[in-house]
Design a protein around this nucleic acid. Structure first.
Ligand code: ZN
Ligand code: ZN
Length: 664
DNA sequence: AGCACGCCGACT
DNA sequence: GTCGGCGTGCTC
């Protein structure tokens, strides 16, 4: 007996192995086998894709090796999952081996915590209030017509109660539920809440859950033992569900849903919607700031829509103040990075016993230092980027490769001793706060402070208990920080957020600020937001001040139409990496040429990305804009053809090629 | 991807 | 002489 297996490698196609007679009875399609691969017979786990009694004539008999053992005779995946894998591999332009590798719980990350297993007696469901009931009924009604419903959340809605009732309804129909969240840090609260009602029926699945537990969840789902609820992050879309009835995708706008590290670079929200069609399942997308894409799908009647704001009586909007720092600088009133008004409000809030959060999405002390005489700036030797000065470690650090450098005492180019810094990160904010508010207890929360074990948890609990008065942080403050006595959030530099060179920058900025607004509104304390910007009259700032989602959408959708950006096209980034820049340019030109032959003006451009070199590899980026209704299989064939052509060309073997479909 | 083999320049 | 970077072939 011979079998074709998928191996967890970025190689196209399957590999043929021989099955010794004594193992034949254990082999089924979907079984897991252990095989030796390559000259050293490296052990790999393989998935049986098909079984043959006779050897296919295309392969040399002598090459064929026997399998070493059967790891799992029972199929490890369901038939429907294979179709899903195939879709992922075609759409996200990767091999089935890539999908196989990410889909199965791997024993790679061995550092795990013990999962606590406490018996909980399920409580009766709490009753929905009038509004929640209304929305629940509306969702159920919408599901009759459309499979996907976008729920535009509002803080006073209490959507979790609605979700709980929808879950219960689905379980009653003997169908499974997948509840997706963008980040592990957000699962804890929801777990605790859901456990109260669903007890053992709920399982949590993500990479911090220990491997045994993950295997147990996988096997339980395979053996039809119970109908259950899975709460998890992106990877849980690969679990062997038998019969999904509902997928809840909460915070659907969050870009963490997009896998960035290894192929397949899938978007879990979009993939989950495809998974839902395979299962004939319903989908709820929840967000207070829906993504442009999802809201557009509402406009074209693909998704149904419920705006909870329409059901609620108008509450007083949270005060947001914008401060014109350009004007203040001109009048020389910006003595620090804080405007006088911000300082005034901070003093007031602290006097009231309230807390203050200062947001600056940049860690370190200064993002760039330069020579006053000749403008020289220290750069990373391996990356094309300025080094960030970190005062605490007194080093220059590259944020792309992590290398540290000693601080130069003079300019390397002209020897001048006068080195200055421009811009500011959280460390500098912290320092200035300590000068301005000498008595206050101040903490900083960024990648550098949270790298230390348990320090994130400690800072969070110290802040929540009120011991910390002023918290300075990067985006990390979104991770599981509950606030209840915050009187003021100051966004110190809205301009860098807005001016980020990406067509989604305005959408992101809006979402980031309005998510803060939602956080502040959730608490009893009346809070406010202060935005420091140089463009107080910018349309986006005005829209943010009005807290006008539709305004943001209208403004953005116009731009998307004009420049044919998503949702009016599909973007694909082809990223080329190589050590030598000249060679890379040549490949890039050739690649573009070959692409243009087949795809014409869908090849929009190729250039150096903002950071043109990372970890010693130069980078070129080719941008494709593809029609939304184009066949991904046809496209895959074209790209595959060009890919092999390039790699077969003499001298270009070592070029690394990555496809990023629907890049974020 | 990851490994071995073989080629060529450069360094003790 | 030999070490190491780099191109190439190959994995059932
Ligand atoms: Zn200089
Ligand atoms: Zn670097």
């Amino acid at each position: 007996m011979y079998i074709e297996v998928i191996l967890p490698l970025p190689l196209n196609g399957t590999f043929t192995y021989f099955v010794p007679t004594e193992m034949e009875s254990q082999i089924m399609i979907g079984s897991l086998v252990v095989v030796g691969f390559g000259e050293y017979n490296k052990y790999h786990r393989g998935l049986v894709l098909c079984i043959e009694q006779i050897l296919p004539s295309t392969i040399n008999v002598e090459k064929i090796k026997p399998i070493l053992s059967v790891e799992s005779s029972r199929p490890a995946i369901r038939q429907s999952q294979l179709r899903f894998w195939q879709w992922i591999s075609n759409y996200y332009l990767c091999t089935l081996g890539n999908v196989f590798k990410t889909a199965l719980p791997s024993s790679f990350h061995m550092k795990e915590k013990q999962s606590e297993r406490c018996k909980i007696i399920p409580q009766p469901f709490s009753k929905l209030n009038e509004l929640q009931k209304k929305i629940f009924d509306q969702i159920v009604e919408n599901f009759q017509k459309k499979d996907v419903c976008l729920l535009h959340k509002n803080i006073s809605l209490g959507e979790i109660e609605i979700y709980i009732h929808l879950i219960e309804r689905t379980l009653k129909q003997n169908r499974q539920v997948l509840y997706l969240l963008p980040e592990i840090a957000l699962t804890r609260q929801i777990t605790n809440h859901l456990k109260q009602f669903f007890g053992e029926q709920l399982d949590v699945y993500h990479s911090k859950v220990n491997l045994n537990k993950r295997m147990e969840i996988w096997n339980n789902l395979l053996s039809d033992k119970q109908y259950q609820i899975i709460l998890g992050v992106h990877s849980s879309i690969f679990l062997p569900f038998k019969n999904l009835g509902l997928i809840i995708i909460d915070e659907e706008h969050d870009s963490s849903y997009k896998q960035q590290k290894i192929a397949p670079y899938y978007h879990a929200r979009n993939a989950a919607i495809v998974l839902a069609t395979i299962h004939n399942s319903k989908v709820i997308l929840g967000s207070a700031t829906p993504s442009i894409e999802s809201f557009y799908n509402v406009q074209i009647d693909k998704y149904s829509y419920i705006n909870s704001n329409e059901y609620l009586k108008k509450t007083k909007p949270l005060p947001i103040i914008s401060i014109d720092v350009k004007e203040l600088k001109r009048k020389r009133k910006m003595k620090t990075i804080f405007s006088p008004l911000l300082i005034e409000h901070m003093k007031q809030k602290l006097k009231n016993g309230e807390q203050v959060i200062l947001f600056q999405n940049r860690r370190g002390f200064a993002p760039c230092i330069f020579c006053k005489a000749c403008n020289w700036t220290p750069k990373c030797h391996f990356c094309d980027i300025n080094l960030t000065y970190h005062k605490e470690s007194d080093r220059l650090t590259c944020h792309y490769c992590g290398r540290n450098y000693l601080l130069p005492n003079k300019c390397f180019r002209c020897g001048n001793l006068n080195l200055q810094s421009i811009g500011y990160g959280t460390e500098k904010v912290e320092e200035e706060v300590q000068v301005l508010f000498p008595g206050a207890s101040v903490a900083r929360m960024d990648l550098d402070t949270t790298k230390v074990k348990k320090s994130l948890k400690k800072t969070i609990s110290n802040f929540e208990s009120g011991q910390i008065q002023i918290l300075i942080g990067t985006q990390i403050i979104y991770k599981g920080l509950n606030i209840n006595k915050v009187g003021l959030i100051g966004i110190l530099d809205v301009d860098t957020l807005m001016n980020f060179p990406d067509f989604r920058a305005y959408e992101r900025t809006y979402q980031l600020i309005l998510q803060m607004v939602e956080k502040v509104k959730r608490q009893r304390t009346q809070g406010e937001l202060i935005l420091q910007t140089s463009h107080p009259n910018h349309p986006l700032i005005k829209i943010v001040l009005q807290q006008n989602y539709k305004g943001m959408y209208d403004m953005q959708i116009e731009e998307r139409i004009l420049f044919k950006y998503p949702p009016f096209s599909r973007l694909i980034h082809i990223l080329l990496y190589h050590k030598r820049e000249e060679l890379l340019c040549k490949v890039s030109d050739k690649y573009v040429h070959l692409l243009q032959e087949k795809l014409g003006d869908r090849v929009v451009g190729h250039d150096k990305p903002i950071v043109g070199k990372i970890k010693g590899l130069y980078i070129r980026k080719i941008l494709l804009k593809i029609e939304v209704n184009a066949s991904s299989i046809a496209l895959r064939k074209i790209l595959e053809g060009i890919h092999t052509k390039i790699l077969k060309t003499a001298g270009l073997r070592r070029v690394i090629i990555h496809y990023d479909v629907d890049p974020i």
